[in-house]
Amino acid sequence: MAWITKNSAGMKIEKRSEPYLSETLKARFRSEILPRYETSMGALLPTLHAVQHEHGWLPHQALMEIADFLSLTPAEVIDTASFYEEYWLRPKGKRLIAVCRSIACEFCGQPEITEAIKARLGIDVGETTDDGEWTLVEVECLGSCDSAPVMLVDEKLHEWLTPAEAVKRLDEKPIGSASSHGLHG
């Protein structure tokens, strides 16, 4: 058995000089998010959403800045962010394909759909294409079992898919600029 070790205390996180939480963003959060919540802990989820929406994912430096902004500890922020799979703590591609793998979709042919997309993009589930364009993931129920199998490309739900149809849908133009950041609230 390999002896796995991790130097959590001494780790260095990647930092850039430009902050992820710009003053404009902070001003927007102060007027749009903070007034809606009684505690700063309550404002954490929407703030994470908004930052991810802005940058595509949540780098550690951004988490530290959020902690500072909301007067929480960095550990509390990453505790929450790591609980939800929809928050990305590592970079992802510009566009996100989320294939539903829950039971209804699986029975209606989800494995073939995943295989077709994998073949088309040349990546495995959980990976990003070399050009940084696509990330493919499998997710739990998307709440559309009646139209199984389904997948979500950015924010658009594609229903009653066949493998061929699923691959064709990838060529559709993304809707709006916001959609280039994948799942968000």
């Binding site: 959590s8 205390a9 260095k12 996180i13 530290m64 960095p74």
Partner: peptide
């Protein structure tokens, strides 16, 4: 765990 690089000291 702790936040990477922020030890419990």
């Amino acid at each position: 765990d702790v936040f990477p690089g922020i030890p419990i000291n």
